[in-house]
Amino acid sequence: MMKINRIKRRGWLNVALIASGLFALSQFGFANGFDTGVANKCKECHEKEVTNFTGDNTHFRAWGSRTDGKSYSCESCHGSGEKHMKDKSVESIIGFSAEKQSKRPAAERSAQCLTCHSTTSKELMFWTQGIHNRNDVSCASCHTMHGGSDKMKPSSETCFKCHKDVKSQVGKFSHHPIIEGKVGCNDCHNPHGTTGASNIRGDNVNQLCYKCHTDKRGPYLNGHAPVEENCMTCHKAHGSQHAMLLVERQPALCQNCHADAGHPSNPYDRRTKFGNNSPAGTPPYPTTVTAPLNGALVVSARLVGRGCTNCHGMIHGSNTPGTSGAYFVR
């Protein structure tokens, strides 16, 4: 504990030192590369949009600081305004609203952003082959260009506008802390595209989960094959009505695969709840039922509490040698 406290204190000292150093770096020159003349012309008709574009808008600030001799303005994204000044139609300017309003396909709208960002952002490496691009989702579908820098960065709520099933799941009884703001969609998915399924930030599902659930990665002396293959065999990543994000309640979940002789074959019905401590053969059990089924008719640790993992607690893998480890009970 002492050690941890020392580390924490040092951590804050380091943060302060780094901050001071980075602040010192910020003492350099600046030249304004943003053409306010163009912006003022646009403002005559689009006052709200131009006003929102100033302040701490990232584009406004970045362009304003450039020293490459080029001039940046509204036209950098929207194209020449000359034609638009004469012809007020949406076709005469590059708009970023949805296709119905802007009359431009998503790919064309995104291409405007990619002119710069395809080389500046590593997140966009696989944009062309990403699922969003191929489903006509454009940059402006998620990013707000004219607001402050905070508005430009989408939140989970942005994703929920289309992914309504996920919005429903993250509100369920068992969920990752997404609505609490501790985990964002962006932590697990790269919405701009990956080469794998579901845009996940991992070479497979397990590698992604191990980033936070590192204690589950092993390697274990006794592994559980479906666990090593795919966490999603038993868990729902976004949320579930069952505890621990399980896809189904135990013991039913485990009995879907483990239906062999012995206790996995027993029907754990309502008589195995807490409170049924009477020995088999006495009411409420039928007198005709004796061993071995009676083991399934008294209160059973395979149903109550967490079910199978009441005993098979090392279900993700065990380093105990022998059969105790193989059955994940030690």
């Binding site: 807490f274 409170g275 109550v304």
Partner: peptide, 11 residues
């Protein structure tokens, strides 16, 4: 049902 009438032990 798995937590109804919860007890800290079984039979």
């Amino acid at each position: 049902d798995s937590y109804a009438n919860y007890e800290f032990k079984t039979e």
